[in-house]
Structure formats: C-alpha cells, structure tokens
Design a protein around this nucleic acid. Structure first.
Length: 542
DNA sequence: TAAGATGTTGTCTGT
DNA sequence: AACAGACAACATCTT
C-alpha cells in the first residue's frame, strides 16, 4: 500500500460541493481524490419507441437537466483543483460494475457515497459495498439526501414508519445542521491509467437531435443555478413567511407560485439541510411565519415523510403486496390512458397540464393533483401505477419516494381517503385563470377560443369554433368522458372498493388496524436492516 | 369502548 | 372578496 490514501467519492444524487458529507469525508487525509459519476446508457440513450422524446428512463428535459448538473459539478470541482471523472457503464443499469472496476484499477483505499434508500439504489449499492468490503476498501455512506435518517425515524417510531404527517413531525423535530465550510481546494485527482475520461456530453451528442427549436424546460440544472434560485426565492422574506402551499396558483407558469427547487433537491444540486437552514434564517428575521404542513419547511418535511414511509414499506411502489395500499379494481382502458398521457382528453385544463409535463418536465403541485385525480378516482378509474410511470419518466424532479407517495395519496389508496373530494377538470383551473392563459400557451390550437368556452370548448357554437379556427372533434378532441357521469360512477366504485377492503380486513379476524399493526410488529427487532432486506427483494427490474 | 376531533390543497350555493 | 355550510363521508388518532 502506498502512503497517501487514494479515496473515491461516488456521485449519484448529491450533485453538489456544498454540504456534501461523502465528499467531505473522502477529501480528508486523502493524497489523491477520485470524484466519479457513472453514465448509465439506459438512462441516457434515446429510445425511439418511447411515447415522447427521451430515453427509456427519462424524458429529454430530465436528461438535459442531469447533463447540466454534471457539467456544473465538474466546473465547480475544477475551481478546487479537481474534476469530475465520468465513467460509462458497459451494460445497461450496471453502474455498480463500473465503480467496482475503477476501485480495483485505481487501487482505491477509501470509498464514500451518499446513502440512497430507493430499492433500485439499495440493490446497486449493495454490489459495490460487498465488493469493497471483500477487497479491504473502507466504505462510508452518510445520510445527507434527506433532513433525517429514515431508518432512525422508523426505529424511534417502534420499528414502523409513521403513516401520518403529524406522527412523523412529532419524531422528526430538529434536522442536523449542514456543513457550512467552504473549500479552497481539494486533493489532486490521481492517475486514471488506461481510462478514457469522457467530457460531459450534450443532448445533441447523445443523439436527441436539435432540441433548441422546441419549447423545453426553462429550468437549468446544476448546483450554481440551485443556489442562485434558492437565494432569489429567499430574498423575498414576506413571501417566505407567508408561504402556504395549498394557496398557490397552479396555472402560473411565467412566474411559478413555488420555488421550483424540487428538481435541484431531487438530484441533490441543493442540500435539503442547507435549504432548511436558510429558511430558518429568514424565519428568525420576521415576526410571523407559516408552519408545517403548509409552510416552506413543511414541504421539506413532506419530502422526508415520503422517504421514510417508502423506506419502511415493502412494495411501496405497487398496489399488490403493499399493506398500506387499498386494493382497488381499477379498470383497464388503453385508449383512455393514452389520451390522458398525450394530452388529448378533450379537457383543456387536463391536457395543458400534461403538455406542460411533456415539454417542461414540471408542473405545479396542484396541477399534478388535477391530472392524477382525473386519471384515477375522479374520472377515468385507471390504475395509479400507470400514471406514476408517466410522471416518473417525464418529471425533471421525478423522485421515487415522493412520486409514488403522491400517487397513493391522490388515488385515495393510502394516506388520504376522502374520495368524494374530486377536482373538477373545468372549474378548478378556471378559478385561478378565468381567461385560460395557461391553456392558450400550452395548447396553441385553442388560443383564439373565447374566454367563456376555453375550459369547455365543446359547448361553443360551431360558428364560434370556426371563427377561433378550432373545430372540436377535428382540431381539438371532444371530451373522452362526460365528467358528471364519470365522477358519479367513480364515486360509486370507490365506495364499493372501500367496503370490500373493510370486509377483507374483518374476515381475516380482528380489526383492520390491529391486524396491520400485528403484521408490522414482526420486523421490529431490527427495523432498518429488515426493511433493507425487504426492499432488496423487491428491487425494480424494469 | 364509543365518540369526537382531525386531516396540506373539492365543489357548489349562498351570504 | 372571503367565508360558511351542505354535500356525503373516508381513516386515524385521542380521549
């Protein structure tokens, strides 16, 4: 062994220099530092068979966001005398293989990477950890993606994840302070031998063609932009102090009603702990401020809530085998599903949101609620997993725990059960944006439809449709379902499904709540390990 | 144990 | 403009 230790920091999420415990640990006492990111072909390769531009895993907006984030990380490392080493996985989904090979070839003594609780990541990281252990490489995997350690919260809750927000925040009180130290330099990068070091590719170089003409996400990836955006948002102290998530305007797109920091949190361009810390600074300087669950910090706690529940719940991302998920006989209808996915339901409010999703990879939270409700319990009665898949691929802030958690919520499968509260695809958007500016922007064919018909263009007289150069049924689709009758039918089916779920619980003796509690208590001895084991068994293979 | 309070973000009508 | 109550009614937690 050489005297100065070679350390590797493996970036996956956590694409930042600030408040990065994995980087911080790797640099300490290291003679040489290898900052690595692995490009996964399956994530980046264009998939012509996909329903919209992008790879099999990600829409082109998120591919671009990731590449921008990597470019920015590389630039920031350069300023500290380092650089990002991009490796290419030889096979699809085999980042672990590339890391293991580099560990061996570069004679790495210490490896650190941020802990990741997603099933896919747990399986991937286990391969690397097993290899490192057997090779005598020291491994450090700090928790820094979330405010709290999900395993720790589960332990403090008696081995079960808290299933309500209130019970969660009763345990999750004060998150750890971020690392505030700013580096002036990092250890030099060591010899990389035979390795071909790739520059960060552009979307064009990856084969997506020229996307500069298309309207794509206005949000630029990277830590630099994340910090700029956060500071800009927090500058308006009154806005921060008065922030109430449910009161935001989902139709605001020129200036969104939220911070739009979610994609930066998803990739870890922004540390949630640093963000939390900075919000607290603002709160200290004002007299009154809103509180969780509606406040800005409340949003970060929701994020941690879903991370924690997803970590402690086997089969969290599916209905079957998921103990916290209502079993509902969703109907199969490919035609209706495709109309929803492609923004052709005939309801302009719904379609505009789906088109914003495809182009920008981002929509306001309440807009997501509208379309999720419409697809599932509100109108089409289609399985939430189908909608989840579409969001998972297209959102730039696509986050496994949060996306699945919200689909469970919106479909009234878990967490939220008031299925008679249904968003209207006509009036909900209208109350924020009576003129329909949002619709006119994302569905240009409707741009000249008069204000009184913009949310229900099929009710416009033919003469008006002609004048607006938009014939319903030809230039823009007729509604795929009648909302009033579809909603009634959905309510009825939800009622039946709930009754059947109650019956199932009672018939297997005991009260439903007690039953599920008994089942949970089996894994109490070592909650974190047992849930890791469970998660590993259910890791995604798509 | 039964009853009451509570739950981030529904819609419609009426004041 | 902002709010209250009806609508029809869920699960979970506390008392």
């Amino acid at each position: 062994m050489e005297a100065p230790t070679a350390a590797m920091v493996w970036f996956r999420k956590g694409l930042r220099v600030h408040d990065n415990p994995a980087l911080d640990a790797a640099r300490r006492g290291a003679g040489r530092l290898y900052p690595v990111f692995v490009l996964d072909p399956r994530y980046l390769r264009p998939d012509p068979a996909a329903a919209s531009p992008g790879s099999a895993r990600a829409g082109v907006a998120r591919v671009r966001f990731l590449l921008e984030s990597l470019g920015d990380l590389d630039a920031r490392l350069h300023r500290l005398g380092s650089r990002l080493l991009l490796l290419r996985a030889r096979d699809d989904d085999d980042a672990a293989g590339a890391v293991c090979a580099a560990l061996k070839d570069w004679n790495i003594g210490r490896l650190s990477f941020e802990s990741d609780t997603e099933p896919y990541a747990l399986a991937r990281d286990k391969k690397v950890t097993d290899f490192a252990m057997s090779s005598g490489i020291e491994v450090f995997t700090p928790v820094s993606h979330t405010l709290f350690d999900p395993a720790d919260i589960i332990n403090k809750n008696g081995g079960r994840p808290p299933l309500t927000y209130q019970s969660f925040i009763a345990i999750a009180v004060e998150p750890p302070e971020p690392i505030l130290e700013e580096y002036s330099e990092l250890p030099p990068v060591g010899d990389t031998g035979e390795y071909e070091l790739l520059p960060v590719p552009t979307v064009e170089e990856l084969g997506y063609g020229d996307i500069s003409q298309e309207e794509i996400s206005p949000f630029q990836g990277g830590e630099t932009e994340a910090l700029r955006r956060m500071k800009e948002s927090l500058q308006d102290k009154e806005w921060v102090a008065k922030f109430e998530k449910p009161k935001g305007d989902p139709s605001a797109f020129l200036k969104p009603a939220t911070t739009v920091l979610s994609p930066y949190l998803k990739f870890g361009c922004l540390s949630s702990r640093y963000f939390y810390h900075c919000i607290q600074d603002v709160y200290r300087s004002v007299r009154n401020y809103t509180k969780p669950p509606v406040s800005l910090t409340g949003q970060l706690l929701w994020r941690d809530f879903f991370y924690t529940v997803s970590f402690g719940t086997p089969n969290f991302d599916q209905m079957k085998g998921n103990k916290i998920c209502k079993q509902i006989p969703w109907s199969e209808n490919e035609e209706l599903f495709v109309a929803w996915r492609d923004g052709r339901t005939g309801y302009p409010w719904i379609d505009a949101i789906m088109i914003q999703l495809r182009k920008w990879g981002w929509m306001h939270h309440l807009a997501r609620h509208s379309v999720a409700c419409f697809l599932t319990r509100g109108d089409l009665f289609i399985h939430w997993e189908k909608g989840r898949d579409v969001f998972e691929r297209l959102l730039i802030d696509s986050d496994w725990a949060i996306n699945n958690g919200n689909w469970l919520w919106l479909s009234c499968s878990s967490f939220f059960y008031q299925y008679h509260r249904i968003y209207s695809p006509i009036t909900f958007g209208k109350k924020y944006d009576p003129n329909g500016n949002y619709i006119r922007h994302f569905i240009p064919v409707l741009k000249d439809m008069p204000r009184e018909y913009i949310y229900e263009p099929w009710t416009a007289p033919l003469s008006i449709q002609k004048k607006a150069k938009c014939i319903i049924g030809k230039d823009y689709p007729k509604p795929v379902v009648d909302h009033d009758t579809a909603t009634k039918e959905c309510r009825k089916r939800m009622g039946e499904a709930y009754a059947s779920n109650r019956l199932d619980s009672y018939s297997s003796k005991g009260k439903p709540s007690n039953l599920s509690r008994r089942k949970w208590s089996h894994g109490d001895q070592d909650a974190s390990n047992s849930s890791i084991a469970r998660q590993l068994k259910t890791s995604r293979s798509d």
